[in-house]
Design a protein around this nucleic acid. Sequence first.
DNA 1: AATGAATGAGAATTCATTCAT
DNA 2: TATGAATGAATTCTCATTCAT
Lengths: 184, 184, 184, 184
Amino acid sequence: MTSKKEHIISATAELIHAKGYESTKLSDILKAADIGKGQFYHYFSSKKDLGISVVDQYVQTWEQNLIEAILQSDKPSTDKLNEMLDWAVSYHESIGEFHGCPFGNLALEMSEHDEIFRTKINALFEKWIRSLENVLEDIVGGEKALMQAQAIVAQLEGGILLMKNFQDLSILRNIAENIRAQYI
Amino acid sequence: MTSKKEHIISATAELIHAKGYESTKLSDILKAADIGKGQFYHYFSSKKDLGISVVDQYVQTWEQNLIEAILQSDKPSTDKLNEMLDWAVSYHESIGEFHGCPFGNLALEMSEHDEIFRTKINALFEKWIRSLENVLEDIVGGEKALMQAQAIVAQLEGGILLMKNFQDLSILRNIAENIRAQYI
Amino acid sequence: MTSKKEHIISATAELIHAKGYESTKLSDILKAADIGKGQFYHYFSSKKDLGISVVDQYVQTWEQNLIEAILQSDKPSTDKLNEMLDWAVSYHESIGEFHGCPFGNLALEMSEHDEIFRTKINALFEKWIRSLENVLEDIVGGEKALMQAQAIVAQLEGGILLMKNFQDLSILRNIAENIRAQYI
Amino acid sequence: MTSKKEHIISATAELIHAKGYESTKLSDILKAADIGKGQFYHYFSSKKDLGISVVDQYVQTWEQNLIEAILQSDKPSTDKLNEMLDWAVSYHESIGEFHGCPFGNLALEMSEHDEIFRTKINALFEKWIRSLENVLEDIVGGEKALMQAQAIVAQLEGGILLMKNFQDLSILRNIAENIRAQYI
DNA sequence: AATGAATGAGAATTCATTCAT
DNA sequence: TATGAATGAATTCTCATTCAT
């Protein structure tokens, strides 16, 4: 039964999103997943091992929900861009609290700590930017597409950072509107 | 002579920039500042007390170097925008390593941990955005100025985040170029 | 098996009796109970937590040995008084060293430090005095019983204090004789 | 000028009475006496040195106010006993807070810690009991005088202990009344 | 598979005392 | 005389990991 393992990963994913990797203590995880130490070390060899599984799970989810379902769908490019912006805003809206972007958070916290984390997070950002570049080629032409894909992702990540710090969703909404106004 | 206290603050500022607040252990600080435990607690009442001093020092530096010297100077608005972008890129260029934005890092790490840190960091972002809004009023008109000021700050912060994760300065350069292309 | 926890409590009880709460360092406890730091914090959340357990254990023992077994037995009142005095003297005699009264010591050390300790110690003194009051009602009549119960407890506590300071059991013996002479 | 030294001793005496010797930190003393570290170590070689001076000052005061002025005066014996009891009650009444007996506190805290403290405190209790014995010889006859002097001192010390723990002066008043009723 | 007791290195902090000026 | 900067051993507590059952 893998579902126990996945249960632990999901419980930890929330904790890490809310508090960060270092601040999420093993005891928090055991409590949240309602398991004992022995069970934890049966499924995972270390806290880091679990951390990596959490990132993998996040990566998989985003690849499906953002990259595949939105950016690589066969809708018109402007629709894709629109959907991506809606998805970003509604993701944070639905959580109800402003913990920031799971990837952005980990990117800043783990980048220089741990090469494995950095590489995995990197790969997702890379894919996101590349897929967005493809979308933008239709809208702004091929030459500027990469630069502007980077700019849009940066704008969203920075907007989520500001949203978290101000504890105010409206900043992210403004950012989304601003992007929309520029490209659509 | 206050310089000993300032010496400790500066040494710690670098450590926190590079590793984050939590990961910067007291022992790291003592080593970096070349002082003993007792001396540390002679100057600061706790690690947090020092952390706040570090943020205060960063705030002061940025208010002088960014807000006052650039955004509130009496040069033309487009020059101010240009200078700000140059300053941002050259700041990270000069450090030689990609630790990210001192404020952005702390914003993400401390936002939900500690209200005092969040408030101080908030105040700086607020000032930055307001000052930039004033600059943009000349360029894009008053109506959109605030939204676009937010967008620019977000873009820079997000760009620095990507830069840190990719360990590649060119992303930040691209972002700066992109902003320049849009407004100048 | 709770006996490990009780083992730690008992070992600590002796230390606290001999040296006081503050002077009993964690390292003393670990050595006396022959356990490691981690094990200690597995059973107790803090030194204070253990301290409270120690007081609770003392309270329980005294309630059984002094209050229930002696003062609330169904023997004649003068026998009860006699037994209490015997018990007090032989308690200190059997230990062989003059560390004072576990409750009196803590009462003086912790009274103004910590409200929880004070309250618990208070409760025991209160019960002791009330039970003794009941015994005395038969001997001196109801009117003076409370005052004289207080006087007897005070005399014993003060006698133990002097005994400790003079490192001489005979003072406590004298006090017991003096009480006996007055009431029996 | 010795008055500075005496000023430090008096300020510390209050602190030790209220908090005990160990809990009175050097920093508390410096603050209370409004002096710097250098000045402290000019007048005293260590904290213990000061502690001994404090005990010496207490001993001197009690020898004057209790032993000489009351117990060795040329008034009738029953007056002396009465005055001693009044003095004891009014001493704690005048302070307004219930910190216990300065000697009783130190007796319990320091007895087994430090032989010098114990000896000095011992000497005072010894003198007190001897002087009271002389007074009692007139009242109860020579045979029982020593035992009853011990009993009275014990009763007062125990009463003050209970008073401190219950934070209630009336217990000490009861004890005084009880002693008066027995001898006067 | 599972429990939770046990480990121990390392964390922040306290504090009497010494030393340079 | 006096200041307060500097020292460092000792203190309580944290926490990921291992081990016996």
